[in-house]
Simulated scan of single mutants.
Amino acid sequence: MFDATRPAHAPTDHPKVKMGRVGVLIANLGTPDDYTYWPMRRYLNEFLSDKRVIDYPAWKWQPILQAIILTKRPFSSGAAYKSIWNHDKGESPLMSITKDQTAKLRAALVERYGDNVMVDFCMRYGNPSTRSKVRQMVAEGCDRILFFPLYPQYAGATTATANDQFFRALMEETWQPSARTVPAYFDEPAYIDALAQSVERAYAAMDQQPDVLVCSYHGMPERYLMQGDPYHCQCAKTTRLLRERLGWDESRIVSTFQSRFGPEEWLKPYTVEHVAELARQGKKNIAVIAPAFSADCIETLEEINEEIRESFEHAGGETFTYIPCLNDEDAHIGALAKVVEDNLRGWLD
C-alpha cells in the first residue's frame, strides 16, 4: 500500500496526504453495460454525439440521431453485441480483454517500478469513465499521470477524443497532476514484432497458406484525411513494416478499411467489398487481421468474423481465417510496457 505522508516542510499539524506516485491510465473506446435497449441507447448516444466522431452541426445531426438512429440502432447493435457477449462474466469481450491487459501490464510495471506506479484503465464512452479513474488516481496519490490511448495509429476520432476526455477530467481537479499523453505507436518495433508473431503462429497452424493477408483497419471519411488526419498514412506504414518483418513481397498483403457509416466517401478499399473482389479474382483462401484494434471487440468479432466473412464466402471464397487481435498476448503486453517505459523517462527511470 502507498501510505499518506506529511508534505516536506509542512507544519506538524498539516494533514497527511498521498502523493508522489505515477499513474498509468490506459484507455480504450468503450462498451455498453448491457446489450438491451436502454444501455445500448445510452452508449450509442454518447458515442455518436461526440463531435470528433460525427462532426456535422448539432442542429442538423442531433434531430436525426435522437429521432431516427437511436430509435432503431440500439436493437440491431444490441443483437450484434448479444452474439459476442461474454455471458459468464456479464460483459462485452472488450471489457474482459481490457481487464486482462491491465492486470498483465500492471504486473510488468510494478515488477520494474514497485509501488511508485499505479496502473488502471478507463473507457472513452461508457464505464469505467475517464473522469472517475482520474479522480481515483489523484486520490491515491498520483501527482503525475501518463495517459495511454490504446490505438496504435492516431486518429482524431479515437486518440484525440480520448485525450480530450482526459483533459476534461483534469479540469475538475483542484490540484491537477502533471500529465503526459502517449503518442501513436504504429511503428514501434516491439508492436510490429508482436503482430508478426501472431501472423506466424496462425499460418503455422494452417494446412494451406492463405493467398492474401488482409489488414483491415477501422475506416474514416476521406474528408478527415484531406483535413490533415495522419491515420491513413500510419496504417499504410504499419502494413509495410509488418510485410517487411515477415519477409513477404507486396502481393501477399493488402490494407483495407471497414465500418463505413453514413453517406460520405470513406477511406478505400472497403474491406467488405475487397474480400469479395479477391474471391472473384481466384484468391480463395485469405486471412484477415485488424492491426488498428488492441483488443477484440464488436468490429472484429462480429463485423469481420461474420459480415466480412460472409461477403467473402458468398463471392466464392473457400477458406477465411480471422487472426485475433493481440489482446493480452505476452508479446503485446511487452510492447505496451516498452511504450510506457519510454514515456515515463524523467518521471520514473
Rank of each mutant, 00 (worst) to 15 (best):
A27T: 11
V254P: 07
W85A: 07
P74W: 02
E200K: 14
L170N: 06
G126M: 09
I69P: 03
L326F: 06
A315I: 09
F293Y: 15
N163G: 02
G20R: 02
F148S: 01
L150Y: 07
E244V: 05
A107P: 00
P269A: 09
E200Q: 14
K89L: 15
A276H: 01
P57M: 00
A196C: 14
H314Q: 10
Y43P: 04
L65W: 04
L242M: 15
D328H: 11
N163A: 08
L241V: 03
R201I: 05
P74G: 06
Q234H: 12
T161D: 07
A184W: 05
P57G: 06
T271A: 08
A80N: 13
E341F: 00
I286H: 12
I54M: 00
C325Y: 05
Q234Y: 06
F312C: 00
P221V: 07
I84H: 11
P291H: 02
F147M: 03
A190Y: 08
R41K: 14
R252A: 04
D115M: 03
Y224T: 12
P63S: 07
V182M: 14
E111S: 14
S178N: 10
A196T: 05
D296F: 01
K51T: 13
G114W: 03
Q62E: 12
I192C: 12
E222M: 12
Q62L: 12
K18I: 00
G114Q: 03
T158Y: 00
V53R: 09
C235F: 03
G90C: 13
D164R: 12
E111I: 04
N28C: 14
D115P: 06
V117W: 01
P183A: 10
A202E: 12
N28A: 15
V288A: 00
P93H: 09
F312D: 05
P183C: 03
L70I: 04
N163L: 10
Q208H: 12
P263T: 01
M206D: 10
S76C: 01
Q136M: 11
H332K: 09
K89C: 07
A290E: 07
L105W: 05
E341M: 10
P149G: 10
H9N: 15
R112E: 14
P183F: 03
A139R: 08
I64F: 14
L246N: 02
I298Y: 00
T271Y: 03
L301N: 06
V110Q: 11
R42F: 08
L65Y: 02
S77M: 11
I69C: 05
I333W: 01
V254E: 15
